[in-house]
Design a protein around this nucleic acid. Sequence first.
RNA 1: GCUCCCAUCGUCUAGUGGCCUAGGACGCUGGCCUCUCACGCCGGUAACAGGGGUUCGAAUCCCCUUGGGAGCGCCA
Length: 471
Amino acid sequence: MTIRTRFAPSPTGYLHVGGARTALFSWLYARQHGGTFILRIEDTDLERSTAESVDAILQGMTWLGLEYDEGPFFQTQRFPRYQEVIRQMLKDGQAYHCYCSKERLEILRTEQMARKEKPRYNGKCRQGVANPPAGVMPVVRFKNPHDGVVVVEDIIRGRVVFQNSELDDLIIARGDGSPTYNFTVVVDDMDMNISHVIRGDDHLNNTPRQMNMLKALGFTPPVYAHVPMILGPDGARLSKRHGAVSVMQYRDDGYLPEALLNYLVRLGWSHGDQEIFSIDEMIKLFDVTQVHSSAAAFNPEKLLWLNQHYIKDGDPKHVAHHLSHHLGKLGIDPSQGPDLIEVVKAQRERAKTLAEMAINSAFFYRNFDSYDAKDAATHLKPEVEKPLTQLRESLAALPRWEAPTIHDAVSGVAEAQGLKLGKIAQPLRVAVAGRAISPPIDVTLTLLGRDKTLERLDAALEHIRIQPVTA
RNA sequence: GCUCCCAUCGUCUAGUGGCCUAGGACGCUGGCCUCUCACGCCGGUAACAGGGGUUCGAAUCCCCUUGGGAGCGCCA
C-alpha cells in the first residue's frame, strides 16, 4: 500500500506550533514509509482566508524543512469538482435540498438546548419539499444514515464508536453553492488517495460524518490518527495569549528549526529516555501509533534548553548561517569582521538563542556606544590604569596575534603586577567588549584583532583618566 | 445540556500485571570547576486524581466519581 499523508491547514492565520506538530507527524509518517506528503490549503471560507496567510504557512513549512511532495493544492480551485460530486449525490438521493432558514434553525437549536438535547437538524426537508419557498437559495444536506454505528479505528485512540442517531444531516453546500469543510475534506481525501489522515483531535467528532460520506461515495476511508491538542503552560488550550504560538515567531526569537522540531516530536511521543533526535532519527524511530492520547502542555523552558543544545552541539557553519540573519536584524554585516564561524565557536556555549548570540557578538563587528555602567564602575577604576597600560604595551609588542601568546601576555602582566588573572582579565574584557561578559579573554582578543583591541584599550584608559576621582 | 476524548513529579515523559521503596529530561535548587558569562560534572526537590473491584500480586485490567479537553455553524 502506498502511503499518502497530507497537511491541510486553513489560511486564516500563521502556521502555529500545533499545526506544525501535526504537519511534522504526517511528514514523518510519509518519509519513514517512502510515501508521499501532500500540502493542501483549505480555503473554502472565502471570508477569512487570505493570501498573506497562505504565504505565512508556506514560509513556516519551508523554514521547518517540511517539504511536501505534492501541492500546495487549493480547494478554491477545485470547486467544479465539488459541484460535480454534489450533483451526483443529489441525483443518487444521498443528498437533498434544504430550504430551512438560518432563523428557523437557530430557533430549533435553542429549543433543543432548552430540552437538554444535543442540537441538530431535525430533517424537515429530508423527504423532499412539496412547495419550495420562492426566492430561497437552498443549501444541500447529506443524508446521514439514521441507524447503526460508525466505528473509527483510530491508530492512536483505538476504537471509537459513534451512534448514527447522534449525527444529523450536515450541510455540504451553502446557499450560494459553495461547498463546506466536511464535504471538501471527504472529496479531497478521496481524490488525492490519502491513505492516512493525521490531524488534530478536534476533528475526531467530524470523523464519523466524513466516513459516512466516503461510504456513500463508495470509497474506503483512510486510516485515521487523531493527535491531541497542545495546551498552554497553564493547561488551557494553547492560544495567542500564551505568547509565541507562531512558528515564524520562533525564528525571529532566535530558535533553530531543528530545536522546534525536536521539541514538537517529543510532545506526546517518546522513545525510551531519549531526548535528542536528529531529523534522521525521527524518521527512523517515530511511531504514530505510540503517540499519547492525552493532551500535552507546551513548555517554553524545555524548548529553550533544546535550542541551546542545538546551538552548542550543532554544526557551527549551520548555526552561523542562521546567526547571520539575526546579526542582520541588528544592522550588522558579518562579512565586516571576524569569521562568523569562529565567532559561533566562541559563543555557542553562552547563548540560548541566536538573537541573544547576535547581541553578545555585536561588539566584534562594531564599536559599542557606551560601557555597561555597572561593569565599568566595577572594573574600569583608577588602580587598573597601570596594569592596563602595561598590558597594552605587552600586547602591542606581541610577535604573533594568537590565543596562546595573548594568554601568556595577559597572565604575564597579572603576575608582574601581583594580581590574580581575573583582576586584569575583567577590566580588559570591559574595555574591549563594553561589559563583563564575553568568551575567554584570549579568544575574544584573537577574534577582535590587534588593532581594535589596542584602540579600545586606549579608549578605556582614557575613560579611566577622565572619570571623577570621587569614587 | 448532549456526544466523544483524556488523567504518572510544576511540565514533557518511561512504565503495557511482579524488574517500581516509580526511571529519565526541562525547571528549581546545593556543591565542584572557573579570567567574566556560560558549558560541564556531582547531588537534592517533586508524581501513579479519589473510591470500589479483578488478581497470589496493580501505576499497569474493569467500574464509578471527580477534574480537564473537544465537538454539537450555510468556520475549518
